[in-house]
Computed example of a mutant assay.
Amino acid sequence: MKSRAYISIGIPFYNTENYLEDAICSVLAQTYQYWELILIDDGSSDKSLEIARDFESRDTRIRVISDGLNKKLPYRLNQIVREAKYDYIARMDADDLMSNHRLEKQIKVLESNKEVDFVTTGCFTIGKNNELTGVRLGDNYQMNAKMILEGVTNLLHASLLARKSWYIRNNYDESRILAEDFDLWLQAAKNNDLNYLVVEQPLYWYRVVENVTVKKMIQGYDMQMEIINSNYKGIVSVSRKNKIIRRFRLKKLVVKYLGFFNLMSVLLKSRHDDCRDQDISDYDESYTEIKRIGLF
């Protein structure tokens, strides 16, 4: 009999007391139950660590790691790889949720496609109170280094399920804060080690209100431009690189303008499609189960 594939799920958290319980409950609600959950505290000063410890005390598959320090996301993501017991590693942000079927569908893809190193998904976008605000189904195509430099992406970083062996070959650069995923894809592509599939379904639920802010976007664009300036040689010409940089600078101006006039909702809406009736039904079914678990 074929042995069951186990997954190490990593959730780093920092001051997410308002959302962490629901994130953990969405793991507990998975139809695929062969996993460990690693909760890594990044020096929280609110009740996040207390919430994580409570879940740890109730389920032996959950373990909490806390050193009291604030080392930022890229460091914690590398730490998850080091701590993972199993050959598959799933990402999730502490303020997000996921469909009950996410792990089941993703692990099936990797088990059926041995040449593929990782798989991501589409997403629902959700608001502060878990209300459904939109959908992005994702597109299944392969990026190359030039596309990544151009700012083209079909990869949702937070929904990543990867083979541990790929992560060991492709560590996060811990200095690339707020653009660690951009750098990861680019370095892997440069090494001809970017072999993936995208499940074109909204299996991950992304909380845009916490993640798409003026400050984070500006800092992310600045870091992306630094990465582009350091990596363009051998991929694009100097003139093309300069054109890409000018485009990122224009993006910064647009974000600053929208932020100044309190119009960020316009940008958020442009980043997703309206939900269909079936999307709403699927979301409601999964979310009901997540909330049921949270009552216990």
Rank of each mutant, 00 (worst) to 15 (best):
V208W: 06
I235Q: 06
N242W: 13
L267S: 07
M217K: 10
K233P: 07
V255N: 01
E200P: 02
I168Q: 13
M225I: 12
N229L: 13
S230Y: 07
I218H: 03
I177E: 09
K252E: 14
D222M: 08
E210Y: 09
N229V: 04
Y204M: 11
Y196D: 03
K215I: 10
R207L: 13
I245G: 00
Y204D: 05
K216C: 12
S175H: 07
A179V: 08
V198C: 06
N231P: 01
E200F: 02
E200G: 03
N211L: 09
N171D: 09
Y257V: 12
W185R: 15
V209R: 06
F182Q: 03
K251N: 11
S281R: 13
L203W: 00
A179Q: 01
E285A: 11
Q224F: 02
Q201M: 11
L161P: 00
H157P: 05
R163Y: 04
A188E: 04
N231Y: 06
Y257P: 03
Q219R: 14
D279N: 14
R169F: 03
V199G: 01
D277K: 15
L197V: 11
R240I: 11
R246Y: 03
A158H: 05
G259T: 09
V238A: 12
S265Y: 14
L263E: 12
N211E: 14
H272M: 12
K215H: 11
K269D: 09
I218T: 07
N195C: 13
D279F: 05
A188S: 15
R240P: 01
D193E: 11
V208P: 00
Y204F: 15
Y172R: 07
G234K: 08
G220C: 03
S230A: 15
W166P: 06
V199Y: 03
V199F: 04
N170W: 12
L258A: 09
F261I: 15
N229Q: 15
S237Y: 06
D183A: 15
V254D: 08
K269G: 10
M225S: 04
N170T: 08
I280V: 15
G220I: 02
L258N: 05
V214I: 10
L250N: 08
K241Q: 14
Y206A: 04
A162V: 02
I244L: 06
F182I: 03
S230H: 08
D279R: 01
K243D: 12
Q224D: 08
K252P: 04
V254Y: 05
V238P: 05
I280M: 12
Q187T: 14
N211H: 14
S239V: 12
I244A: 02
R247N: 15
E285K: 13
M223F: 03
V209L: 04
K243G: 10
G259K: 04
V209K: 08
W166H: 12
E226F: 06
M223N: 09
E200Q: 12
A188V: 06
Y196H: 14
L160R: 08
R246T: 06
K216G: 15
R249C: 07
G220K: 02
K243M: 13
G220D: 00
V212N: 07
W185G: 00
K215W: 11
I280A: 09
Y204T: 07
I280C: 09
Y204I: 08
Y283F: 15
L186F: 03
N195G: 04
V214G: 04
L186Q: 01
A162K: 01
N171P: 14
K233Q: 15
C275V: 13
K241Y: 06
Q219S: 13
V208T: 10
Q219G: 12
A158F: 00
